[in-house]
Design a binder for these strands. Structure first.
Lengths: 152, 152
DNA sequence: AATAATGTAACATGTAAAGTTACATGAAAC
DNA sequence: GTTTCATGTAACTTTACATGTTACATTATT
């Protein structure tokens, strides 16, 4: 199944933004992500609504970080995206009349729920600040090679 | 994202089959699942190749269980389906040049991997026999109401 | 006013599961 | 041995959804 990469994408954007003050236009960010400005605006909309970033129109406008990076976890970002489906598998039908289906659903639901809970817990353990620190370390260990964070 | 229900579906089929000797035609099973016979053959193909079920052509043919239900776990069934993608989310790109993307991938991969491992472990804990027992309990507790396992 | 940005709707594309059609193959019944 | 009933499988259609794109309204700066 085709996998949803919005979380990966929006984290990429946020990390880019955390490296320097901004603001960043959707077009700039889109180029760094090799995608379309409208896609950037779409995945950022939820973050804006929750106050994690700010967007301004007109000359000199664009996107700015508006939160304490050490207070926002990847789970928060995931939720800001609208909590998209985590698992690629699901039950054929929910609340079926068929007892066979009920038995199957019961055991699968348990396994699915556990896996989702673990994934959300893991995402909840990592803040944007931690991610940004990790990036800075990666950048640092490449400095002596004269390379930058941006794409070549 | 649209979720893959093949595991749910094939378990439903196997559980139906575990309730009485068979053989069952694809058409019979398809009716119980409210789907198409070809879909049944498709999701059963992997199980047949691994010897969990047998299929016979011609008059009186159809599908038969061919394994010890207490030896086959839901994980085995999942693998028989060809180990389809478990998570609906993934990284934008694998092995990217961009350090930002690498930092994002690193943390997400860890979380994704843990969740997948847990899900597979949970599926590995449940055998088809356990599932069948659970179903029989559900059937038993409805007997006094004069209901059957099949759809109304 | 002109320009540069976001906001958003509408539409196109890509991908994978699910559903369907068609037909070849093989086994049993007659 | 031919008819019937079953699986096996390829090819195509449908559906769902993320992604990509176009178009245009809105708003802020110059």
């Amino acid at each position: 199944m085709k996998r949803d990469s919005r979380l990966s994408g929006v984290l990429h954007v946020l990390l880019h933004m955390a490296q320097k003050p901004g603001p960043f236009t959707s077009e700039t960010l889109a180029k760094a992500m090799d995608t379309n400005p409208v896609v950037i605006r779409r995945i950022m909309a939820g973050l804006r609504d929750l106050g994690y970033v700010r967007s301004e129109k007109g000359h000199g406008g664009g996107w700015t970080l508006a939160c304490d990076l050490s207070k926002v976890t990847l789970r928060d970002v995931y939720i800001a995206l609208g909590s998209p489906t985590l698992l690629a598998m699901g039950n054929r039908t929910e609340a079926p009349d068929c007892l066979v289906e009920q038995a199957v659903n019961a055991v699968l639901d348990q396994a699915f729920h556990d896996a989702e809970a673990l994934l959300l817990a893991r995402l909840g353990e990592v803040t944007l600040a931690m991610l940004s620190d990790d990036l800075r370390k990666r950048l640092g260990s490449r400095k002596h090679q004269g390379m930058s964070a941006h794409h070549g």
